[in-house]
């Protein structure tokens, strides 16, 4: 019974931490666009927290490089379990057009485990929302795994 309520509450209240590893800001603008009245993410209980301690979903955009890979790792570690990582945009997925650069590590999944990949350059708001909703399914699985 309580388990059921908890699962429901979890699905209805995903708080997002958005981290930009060094993208061109195209994806970031689209992420912020989701909060605007047109898309109104808060309808789904989604809040952009800006603080790993409060987050459930880690939304990462941009190419990971040698400088920021530790930051990415640290933020990931500070998010309490259960948590889901969503990588956004071409750069977040693979390193994008920068992947051959000398300082680039590659996609987000080179550093932390990624659950959902959202392609696009930049990713469209609809795609981002879709990605987060997909992430929620993963979130539920992880949560039930954590309890059992």
């Amino acid at each position: 019974m309580f388990e059921k309520i908890l699962t429901k509450a979890r699905m209805l209240s995903p708080w997002v931490l958005h981290f930009d590893c060094g993208s061109c800001n195209g994806c970031d603008i689209e992420v912020l666009a989701c909060l605007t009245p047109v898309y109104d993410l808060e309808r789904f209980g989604i809040i952009n927290t800006g603080n790993p301690m409060h987050a459930d979903i880690f939304l990462v955009t941009g190419t990971v490089n040698h400088r920021n890979k530790q930051v990415l790792r640290n933020l990931y570690d500070q998010i309490p379990e259960p948590k889901v990582v969503v990588a956004l945009g071409a750069c977040g997925l693979t390193g994008g057009v920068f992947r051959e650069a000398y300082n680039v590590v590659g996609g987000v999944d080179k550093v932390i485990p990624v659950d959902v990949y959202v392609p696009g350059c930049p990713a469209k708001p609809e795609a981002i929302i879709d990605g987060v909703v997909l992430g929620l399914e993963k979130f539920r699985q992880k949560a039930s795994a954590m309890h059992s």
Binding site: L6, L12, S13, G45, P80, E81
Partner: peptide, 13 residues
């Protein structure tokens, strides 16, 4: 929504 948030927070690590 505030209740969902709080219940979820109780379920976190």
């Amino acid at each position: 929504q505030p209740f969902y948030d709080v219940i979820k927070l109780f379920g976190k690590e």
